[in-house]
Amino acid sequence: MSKKNKDIEVRIEETIKPIHGKDYTVNQLFIGKKMIGEIMTMGPKEFQSFLGDEDLGASRSLETAIETVIRQWNLHD
């Protein structure tokens, strides 16, 4: 018996977070009401990904950062 893949809707909300006196754009990824990760915009081509307290590293595009968070969440959940 094979397991069938389900489509999961991921919602992205953009917010501003003040960190050490500087405002950063943060994209929060949600599945349902549960936040699965955050992506902080550090520069034009630098996005830092987080899964809870775990730093997942930097990416050159927002799309790559989103993919990194979803892959890691998939492994942990």
Results as ranks from 00 to 15, higher is better:
Asp23Pro: 05
Ile8Asp: 00
Thr15Lys: 05
Thr41Trp: 04
Ser61Gly: 11
Ile36Gly: 00
Lys17Cys: 07
Ile19Trp: 00
Phe30Asp: 03
Lys45Met: 14
Asp55His: 10
Asp53Ile: 14
Met35Tyr: 02
Glu63Arg: 09
Gly37Glu: 01
Ser2Asn: 14
Leu29Thr: 04
Gly32Leu: 02
Glu14Met: 06
Asp23Met: 01
Gln48Thr: 13
His76Asn: 08
Arg60Asn: 15
Val69Asp: 02
Phe50Asp: 00
Thr41Gln: 15
Glu46Leu: 10
Leu75Val: 12
Asp7Ala: 07
Thr25Val: 13
Ala58His: 13
Lys3Glu: 14
Asn74Cys: 04
Ile12Cys: 12
Asp7Gly: 02
Leu29Phe: 00
Lys17Tyr: 09
Leu56Val: 06
Ala58Gly: 09
Ile39Thr: 05
Glu9Thr: 12
Asn27Tyr: 12
Ser59Gln: 15
His76Thr: 05
His76Trp: 07
Ile19Val: 12
Leu51Trp: 13
Thr25Asn: 10
Ile36Cys: 02
Ile31Met: 01
Val26Gly: 06
Lys4Pro: 08
Lys3Trp: 05
Lys34Arg: 10
Gly43Ala: 15
Lys45Cys: 13
Ile19Ser: 08
Pro44Glu: 15
Leu75Thr: 14
Gln28Ile: 11
Asp55Val: 10
Gln72Asp: 13
Asp23Val: 05
Val69Ala: 02
Glu54Pro: 00
Asp23Ile: 00
Val26Arg: 03
Lys45Trp: 11
Asn5Asp: 09
Leu75Cys: 05
Leu29Ala: 07
Arg11Asp: 04
Tyr24Val: 07
Glu14Phe: 01
Glu54Thr: 07
Pro44Lys: 02
Gly52Leu: 05
Asp77Tyr: 08
Ala58Asp: 15
Glu13Gly: 12
Pro18Asn: 14
Asp7Lys: 06
Lys34Met: 03
Glu13His: 09
Leu62Ser: 12
Ser2Glu: 15
Gln48Ser: 11
Ile12Ala: 08
His76Cys: 04
Glu38Asp: 04
Thr64His: 13
Ile70Val: 12
Asn27Ile: 08
Val69Gln: 01
Glu46Pro: 02
Ile36Phe: 01
Ile8Asn: 01
Ala65Glu: 11
Phe30Cys: 10
Asp7Met: 05
Glu63Gln: 15
Glu67Met: 11
Gly32Lys: 06
Leu75Met: 10
Met1Gln: 13
Asp55Glu: 09
Lys34Ala: 03
Ser59Ile: 04
Ile39His: 01
Trp73Asn: 11
Glu46Gly: 10
Ser49Gly: 13
Phe50Asn: 02
Lys17Arg: 11
Asp77Glu: 13
Glu38Gly: 07
Glu63Asp: 14
Lys34Ile: 04
Arg11Lys: 15
Ser2Gln: 11
Thr15Leu: 03
Thr68Ser: 09
Ile70Gly: 04
Glu67Phe: 09
Arg71Asp: 14
Leu62Val: 05
